[in-house]
């Protein structure tokens, strides 16, 4: 899709199954250098499992993962293979929980370096990473403990702990969901400026479409283990094609349109509906406006997976592809 550029990370038809639960059920996604991709979905959509797989912590059942165009260095036996790539770092939802209360901020930020056995220029690297994460002057925070700083600063410490490894990709799982609304903007602005200034890429998992609008270049919408719609943020959010994306967008507070409430909750991953997995809740199908042959396909035929090559797509029989 970006000819000549190697994606930082590329997942092709990745499956992660837990027994009969298909948490990730054939997902393809890529992140290019210098872009922010938002992976949007509700809890139970498999988005957290997917990014754990991209990070190498979650063994995949099948499918292919490539890091900067190459196979990662797999460890462990078949079926339980994991990998670690210092170029991919993680930012967590709950910064308070992600920081060991018994370690100082300095020790927390330096932890990655110490694990990698890099000790020579540790202090300089730690200070630089903290300054990049907006903790200035860094020295002021070195000997403090997590409980002595605010929630927003804790999230900056988590980010600094990732930046110290000089990653090319940050995976962020709901990075502002547990923060006060007023702090949210600052942390998001930090992500955007890291991307714009140093060519870092970010894959951010969120349920918040406003966050995608705020900082993301591309968006992928996930439902029940599959990506159901992808595209540039402006296009997807201005003209959503998949009925699920439309419904999600309609319930964003403060919008003028009437909220399109879906019935019930996201089904259990162990009981993925046949046909289109969204059909039991699909307002379009329920409206009865679909031509009969399309409606029949919705119930009986899987609309398939969205491939890596597709720039703008929706996995929906009612949408012409």
């Amino acid at each position: 899709m970006h000819p000549g550029v190697t994606p930082l990370v590329e997942a092709r038809d990745v499956h992660v199954h837990f027994g009969t639960a298909r948490a990730v059920d054939g997902v393809s996604i890529s992140v290019m250098p210098g872009e922010v991709v938002a992976l949007v979905g509700e809890s139970g959509s498999g988005k957290t499992t997917l990014i754990r797989a991209l990070q190498g912590l979650q063994p995949v059942t099948s499918g292919e993962i490539r890091i900067r165009g190459a196979e990662p260095e797999w460890k462990g036996r078949a079926g339980r293979r994991t990998f670690h790539d210092p170029g991919i770092q993680m930012v967590f939802q709950d910064p308070t929980g992600a920081l060991n209360p018994r370690h100082t901020i300095y020790e927390i930020v330096a932890e990655g370096l110490r694990i990698q056995g890099r000790r020579d220029d540790e202090e300089e690297l730690v200070a630089t990473a903290m300054a990049r994460a907006g903790l200035r002057p860094p020295e002021r925070f070195f000997s403090l403990y997590p409980h002595q700083i605010s929630g927003g600063q804790r999230q900056r410490v988590v980010i600094a702990g990732a930046l110290v490894m000089e990653p090319s990709l940050l995976l962020a799982d709901e990075p502002v969901a547990s923060l006060d609304a007023s702090i949210r903007g600052e942390i998001l602005a930090l992500f955007r400026s890291l991307v714009d200034e140093s060519g870092l890429a970010v894959l951010v998992v969120t349920h918040d479409l406003g966050l995608a609008w705020n900082i993301a270049d591309r968006i992928a919408v996930m439902y029940l283990g599959r990506i159901v719609e992808v595209g540039a943020v402006e296009e997807v959010l201005a003209e959503p094609q998949h009925p699920y994306t439309r419904a999600l967008l309609s319930v964003v507070p403060g919008r003028d349109e009437k909220p399109q409430l879906l019935k019930g909750e996201i089904p259990d991953l162990r009981n993925v509906p046949s046909g289109c997995r969204f059909h039991p809740r699909c307002p379009l199908l329920q409206s009865g406006l679909l031509p009969e042959e399309v409606a029949a396909r919705c119930v009986g035929e899987d609309p398939g997976r969205i491939g890596l090559e597709e720039i703008r797509a929706a996995a929906c029989w009612a949408v012409a592809r």
Partner: peptide, 22 residues
């Protein structure tokens, strides 16, 4: 189960490091 153990693991920590430090 605490998140900081997860964080250490995502930083590439081996079991020994996690047990000793966390």
């Amino acid at each position: 189960q605490r998140l900081f153990v997860d964080r250490a693991r995502s930083l590439g920590a081996k079991s020994g490091h996690i047990i000793r430090n966390h």
